[in-house]
Amino acid sequence: MLGQHGRGLSTALFTRPALALARAGVTPNMLTVAGTVLTVGAAVSTLPQGRFLLAPPLLAALLAADSCDGILARATGRTSQFGAFLDSTMDRLADGAIFGSLIVWAALHLADGALRTTTVSLGVVCVVLVAAVPYARARAESIGATASVGIAERTDRLVIIGVAILAVGLGAPAWVLSAGLALVAAASAVTVIQRIVVVRSQALAQERAGAMPGGERA
Score class of each variant (00 low, 15 high):
Met212Phe: 15
Ala106Lys: 03
Thr155Ser: 13
Leu59Arg: 02
Leu54Ile: 12
Gly215Lys: 08
Ile151Leu: 15
Val197Thr: 11
Leu31Ser: 10
Met212Leu: 13
Asp95Lys: 10
Pro28Cys: 03
Gly25Asn: 04
Pro28Leu: 08
Thr32Arg: 02
Ala34Leu: 14
Val44Lys: 01
Val130Glu: 07
Ala218Thr: 14
His5Thr: 14
Leu158Ala: 02
Ile143Pro: 00
Pro173Tyr: 10
Gly100Arg: 07
Ala189Asn: 11
Val190Tyr: 13
Ser178Ile: 14
Ile151Lys: 11
Cys126Thr: 06
Val176Lys: 04
Arg195Pro: 11
Val149Glu: 14
Leu13Val: 12
Ala97Asp: 09
Val168Tyr: 00
Leu58Val: 13
Leu63Asn: 08
Leu181Tyr: 04
Ala43Thr: 03
Pro56Cys: 02
Arg200Ile: 10
Ile196Trp: 15
Asp66Val: 02
Leu181Ala: 02
Thr46Pro: 02
Ile160Leu: 06
Arg51Trp: 15
Ala147Asp: 09
Ser10Cys: 14
Pro28Arg: 09
Ala174Leu: 10
Ile103Gln: 06
Leu63Ser: 08
Val104Asp: 03
Thr76Asn: 08
Val37Ser: 00
Arg195Phe: 09
Thr146Asn: 14
Glu207Arg: 15
Leu62Asn: 03
Ala43Glu: 05
Thr117Glu: 15
Val130Asn: 03
Ala43Asp: 04
Ala94Trp: 09
Ala182Asp: 03
Gln206Phe: 14
Ser121Gly: 15
Gly96Val: 05
Ile165Ala: 04
Ala132Gln: 12
Gly83Phe: 05
Val120Met: 12
Ala136Met: 13
Ala185Ile: 05
Gly70Ile: 06
Thr118Ala: 15
Pro17Lys: 04
Gly144Asp: 11
Ala111His: 15
Val33Ala: 09
Ala24Pro: 09
